[in-house]
């Protein structure tokens, strides 16, 4: 087992474990913390795939900003205890089964794809670096970039309007 393989399996297991804990923890605060673990594992994957800039952005935006926002809201609502009354166990089971079935079907659909043995190792490219991404972003994708700034503005206004006490 090479070092990449060991890293890959470690990060994968960590991500899946984190995801399962997000779904299953009773305490929302724990869920948030496990989600941060997932994000860290995914960032590791990004780095392994030479997407360094995305890895950093993922950590800063998701694990940093968004998760803090979640935590903030949860604490604001004082929901650190499990406030979820369990009424219908069957519906829960049905949801789990449906998710599992979807996974089965997707795996069955994708396991024979043409590209399944294409390796992702070796040959570090430089496309994941900020220089290359920035070049493309501010030339070919400048219009979507500007539009996304408008989106942010409108989201901000929307959040303020919604949060205003009326």
């Amino acid at each position: 087992m090479t070092i990449t393989a060991i890293l890959f399996w470690f990060l994968t297991v960590l991500a899946l474990l984190g995801a399962l804990m997000v779904v299953s923890s009773k305490n929302p605060v724990h869920s948030v913390l496990w989600l941060i673990v997932v994000f860290f594992a995914l960032s590791g994957h990004y780095i392994m795939m030479n997407a360094q800039f995305l890895a950093i952005v993922n950590l800063i935006v998701y694990a940093g900003a968004i998760m803090v926002l979640f935590l903030f809201v949860i604490m604001l609502m004082n929901m650190n205890a499990d406030s979820e009354p369990q009424k219908n166990q069957w519906l829960k089971l049905a949801g789990a089964i449906a998710g599992g079935a979807l996974m089965l079907v997707l795996v069955a659909a994708l396991k024979d794809t043409e590209t399944r043995y294409r390796s992702l190792e070796g040959a570090e490219g430089n496309i994941g670096l900020i220089e290359q991404l920035g070049k493309v972003l501010f030339t070919d994708y400048v219009l979507p970039f500007e539009i996304s700034s408008v989106l942010f503005l409108s989201a901000m206004v929307g959040a303020v309007v919604l949060g205003k006490k009326d």
Binding site: A98, G99, M103, L106, V107
Partner: peptide
Amino acid sequence: VALFCIGIAGVLTR
């Protein structure tokens, strides 16, 4: 796929 389906299951159960 696994992450996505865990997410789905979470949406359905929680």
